[in-house]
Design a protein around this nucleic acid. Structure first.
Lengths: 342, 342
DNA sequence: CTTGACATTGCAACCGGTTGCGGTTAGAAT
DNA sequence: ATTCTAACCGCAACCGGTTGCAATGTCAAG
């Protein structure tokens, strides 16, 4: 690989001149610019991004770490949506996306710290805000721009986030089910240590409380976003017999599909006997049978917005502070219906 | 951000000693190792990955560029599958994934050259091998390990690839449709400039020729992997009247779903009047109504294998040469059935 | 014909690690 | 007691760009 110095000798100029040509600096005569470009062309020179990053202290990368790399995780629309929003704006502004994997739990945080601490990216998007670690505090120490997807529960901190009002919309979903006459409603959350799960649980509890419903602790379960998690939740709750839920709310569509599968296996008709609501608005949810009622969360838009905020912050040098929220939408399809009359 | 020199002064040693401690070099006494680690801890030091990359000439990154960033592209299972396989093994071996976006066509190649030429990654996976550009030749010049997903049509070149025998399996799909009695079969490809599309087309033509069927040119169309592409293909082919196809093969599930939608709108019963086959084995395909028969291509396994090959090549320093193929599987569901008896 | 402003380019230090080489020292071998 | 070996660590160059500063050249105003 030719370096800037190889080009310099061939063009008969100093390396710094070559640098200036390639970084579009002014005060380079047309003649030498051409000579340099010619030499570069002849040698097949392309500036080394790593070296450039070292001096410029910027990498033109936006990082995320995916919470889990287990097989089913990629079947839900969450991850693809996230990547879509991120890639679209990153691409538009000439940034690239650095994706780190993780095995869930603390490992996600470890990976994040590693990327950020070793300065591999100019900014980060926090996908799943955990409650068991002070990620925000650490990130502020690192002094790197970041935007949280979801609402961090640190009110004083001036951190940027794009949130989807999870508590509110989950409550809306539950209210919708209550209006349909359901009183035994299950909550199948994702990862209990993640803020969004707690928010949704609060929304669930709020809506039930409003309606004067005392939920059974057994109605709350966690499926860790896996299809099988939804399936297993049904297996457990069905044992409650007459106190088994007549409606399930799942924190992603994949778990909801698992719930549908479990119900189908037991020949429990949906929505006649049991209603099911998913989250995210996956394509599979639309095609499911019965078509899955789902709380659409515009994750692509959220990460797109987060990426824009990040890029602006990187370019201005100011800490990102924008806090915004997006609207979700309950897409009512045929997996939900009136509660059965016992 | 503290540097290695800050740590050095605090520990009272030379920077090179700090470096040796952090890169696990031998010949460092226990005492100084501890002093260095203590100092690093106190300062919150973490080695700068960029600087390290510069000297070591390796970034611990595997790159891909996604062929398109348009909205619907992420609804098919292709991209998530690719990311899954890639992330799983990258994660396992301590690599990270650099994702570049592209607007399709030549831009994909431009992005690729940019990443590779600027040495941002240690290896690349070529997702869509194009026929209109000699990507392989260029990549060989760059002297960077790469693995192609699909079979490049350059026989002499010693390039590594993981292929899914697209021609063979597409022919199998068409034969299956022929066995069902279909004789007017449509081919809805993705991007005509991409090798996999041509391979599939050849498979399609082979199978038809075997059966003595002379295909109409109008039966071949390209949907560029978009849902609407499938939808539009039906709109065009339906005009053929009695010569309109009774079966559609689509190169991804998203287009197949678009085909189903178009047929549904026109009240054409599937599979009674028209059969539809998709590709990739998306979750949505399984839940579609009727459930979509689909050619499952194990893209996650393919990219996982590609990533393994890449990493091994990076670590040994040898150019990757492994050429392997995976098995696909025609998942027969209810969107296909006997050809209608006119 | 000066003087000055501005365009153009070279010089050298710097970004933050890595590493070959050489010097010092301690303990073992003779 | 002397020599040898190996452990330990510092020195300085290097990875491949960037940039402030200084030097030189050019042209127009005075």
């Amino acid at each position: 690989m030719p370096t800037i110095r190889d080009v310099a000798v061939r063009a008969g100029v100093h390396p710094s001149t070559v640098s200036r040509v390639f970084s579009g600096k002014p005060y380079i005569s047309q003649a030498t610019r051409e000579r340099v470009l010619e030499a570069a062309e002849a040698l097949g020179f392309q500036p080394n991004a790593i070296a450039r990053s070292l001096t410029l202290q910027r990498t033109n990368m936006l990082a995320i770490v995916v919470p889990h790399v287990f097989d089913g995780y990629f079947d839900d629309s969450f991850f693809p949506q996230v990547m879509r929003g991120l890639l679209q704006v990153a691409y538009k502004y000439g940034y690239r996306v650095l994706v780190g994997g993780s095995g869930g739990h603390m490992d996600e945080v470890t990976q994040l710290y590693d990327i950020v601490g070793s300065r591999q990216a100019d900014g980060v998007i926090i996908l799943s805000y955990r409650l068991d670690v002070d990620v925000i505090g650490a990130l502020l120490e690192f002094n790197i721009p970041f935007v949280v997807i979801g609402r961090p529960d640190i009110p004083a901190a001036e951190v940027a986030f794009v949130e989807s009002q999870d508590r509110h919309y989950t409550a809306e979903v539950i209210r919708y089910l209550i209006r349909l006459g359901h009183r035994r409603i299950a909550f199948v959350g994702g990862d209990p240590d993640v803020a969004v799960t707690v928010e949704r649980l609060l929304g669930y509890q709020t809506a039930l409380a409003e309606a004067g419903i005392e939920p059974l602790p057994e109605w709350v379960d966690y499926g860790f976003f896996a299809e099988d998690g939804g399936y297993q939740a049904v297996q457990r709750m069905i044992r409650l017999g007459v106190r088994a839920p007549t409606a399930y709310y799942a924190a992603n569509d994949l778990m909801a599909l698992g719930i549908l599968r479990a119900l189908r296996e037991r020949h429990i008709p949906v929505p006649e006997a049991v209603s099911v609501v998913g989250t995210n608005g996956s394509l599979a949810a639309a095609h499911a049978h019965p078509a899955l009622t789902t709380l659409y969360v515009p994750y692509a838009e959220m990460t797109a917005r987060a990426a824009s905020i990040l890029i602006r912050s990187i370019q201005t040098g100011e800490k990102p502070r924008e806090q915004s929220q997006v609207e979700c939408q309950l897409i009512i399809r045929t997996s939900t219906g009136p509660a059965p009359t016992d």
